[in-house]
């Protein structure tokens, strides 16, 4: 971590900081404190998972990754994640384009969706969904379909932010009118003109959605429980009988989240 450049004075305003030589200290302390707060628990995971009678051992890593059930849970999470990405992003991209084109009054309403997770947290949505989907015509409780459907709704805000950002940059209306006057069909306009414009938004949205699904616990517990076990459910159950494996998996989850965030930065930087 490079802390030094954070506290050096900005290049364009030297006069401002010149007469305040001691201002940098509390800043440095605060930023260092945040970094320490973030990393100390990670060190805890590392130490717990490598602790052995005679020093350090990576035996738990080997064993945890050799366990075939790990791959089945990981597979379940990957399956749910990829389907959620496909549904959420298709739905968001198409609906946003349509709203831009034909129903601009909808945009502020869709913007409100981004506050949805705060008003309707996973617990609330979970108990609502299990009551809707237990009666026979809609008996989906325990199936991955229900979980994926719920994830598709919960991740709409992530997808919305990302796609809307790139849609704003492109002049959708003009592009559509130009293509239309040349005789292109709506579908062709959407696939060949609009989609390439928002591709970077779709990729960032996909990363956000995936990183959410990969760590989501509450909805999985409520909706599918033991009948379709996802990776976070596995980490939680493992803890009671094989805590070291569970801690190895927790570390893996941190690395995966960090990797997704880093890829996100790379993609958005490439776009600008």
């Amino acid at each position: 971590m490079t802390i030094a450049p954070l506290t050096s004075p900005p290049a364009h305003a030297p006069a401002q900081t010149a007469d305040r030589p001691k201002k940098g200290t509390w800043r440095l302390v605060l930023i260092a404190a945040l970094l320490i707060y973030i990393f100390i628990p990670i060190v805890g995971l590392l130490r717990f998972s490598t602790r052995a009678a005679n020093g350090i051992s990576f035996q738990f890593y080997r064993d945890a990754f050799a366990d075939p059930s790990f791959y089945s849970f990981l597979g379940n999470s990957l399956f749910a994640g990829l389907w959620t990405i496909a549904i959420t992003l298709t739905l968001t991209t198409f609906t946003l384009y349509w709203a831009y084109l034909k129903a601009r009054w909808l945009l502020p309403l869709m913007e409100m969706l981004s506050l949805l997770p705060f008003v309707v947290p996973a617990v609330t949505l979970g108990i609502g969904l299990i009551q809707v989907f237990t009666t026979p015509p809609l008996a989906l409780t325990g199936t991955p379909q229900l979980l994926i459907g719920a994830y598709a709704i919960v991740t709409l805000p992530f997808a919305y932010r990302a796609v809307e950002n790139s849609l704003q940059g492109a002049n959708v209306l003009t592009l559509t009118e130009a293509a239309e006057s040349l005789g292109a069909s709506w579908w062709r306009i959407f696939i060949e003109i609009i989609l390439p414009c928002v591709w970077s938004g779709v990729i960032s949205g996909g990363l956000l959605v995936f990183s959410f699904v990969f760590g989501e616990f509450t909805l999985a517990l409520f909706l599918v429980g033991s009948s379709y076990q996802t990776f976070p459910l596995y980490i939680q159950q493992l803890y009671s009988y094989q805590p070291q494996y569970s801690v190895v998996m927790s570390l893996l989850s941190f690395v995966a989240t960090w990797l997704a965030a880093w890829l996100l930065v790379v993609f958005t930087r490439g776009k600008n």
Binding site: M1, T2, P5, L6, I31, L34, L35, I38, I40, P41, I42, V43, G44, L45, R47, F48, S211, F212, G215, E216, F217, P232, I235, Q236, Y239, P243, S246, V247, M249, S250, L251, S253, F254, T257, W258, A261, W262, L264, V265
Partner: peptide
Amino acid sequence: NNGLLTLASVAANWGGVPLAFAMIAT
């Protein structure tokens, strides 16, 4: 710093089960 902000967004989003176990181990 971009790296610091990425780290902050990871920490802000990473809660849940793994975080609980990390705190127990700490």
